[in-house]
Simulated scan of single mutants.
Amino acid sequence: MCRNIKALFNFEPPATEEEIRQAALQFVRKVSGYNKPSQANEAAFNAAVAEIAAITSTLLDSLETHASPKNREEEAAKARARRA
């Protein structure tokens, strides 16, 4: 998985639209091989980001869990500790 795409499910507060869009953007960048597409490919690139963000929102809204929500700060601290 792309290192820049973070888990978005089961957090308190829930993932924002911007976080979902950033994850979709990272995914499309990875799949397409473009960091910034050419003008000829920009419309297709942006459409893919929008569609993936919408699908991701639907997915996150549909998922169920019995686990309690994770705390963003605690998860970030764990990630920093792993990197150290």
Rank of each mutant, 00 (worst) to 15 (best):
E51N: 14
R72T: 06
A48P: 00
G33Q: 11
R80E: 15
N10T: 07
Q22N: 13
P13L: 10
E75T: 10
A76Q: 13
D61P: 00
K70C: 07
R83K: 11
N71Q: 10
E73Y: 08
L59W: 06
R29K: 14
S38P: 08
R29P: 00
Q26Y: 11
R72Y: 02
A23E: 03
S57E: 15
S32P: 01
T65A: 05
I20D: 00
I52S: 02
S57P: 00
D61T: 07
R21Y: 12
A54L: 11
C2I: 10
E17W: 07
V31I: 08
L8G: 04
T16W: 03
F9K: 03
Q39Y: 13
Q22T: 10
A76H: 04
N46W: 04
L25V: 03
P37F: 01
Y34H: 12
P69D: 05
A43W: 05
Q22Y: 10
I52P: 00
P14H: 00
D61Y: 04
K70I: 03
S32G: 04
E74D: 12
L63R: 12
L63Q: 11
A67E: 10
L60H: 03
V49F: 00
A77H: 04
A54P: 01
D61L: 15
A48C: 13
R82M: 14
E42H: 09
A7V: 05
K78C: 03
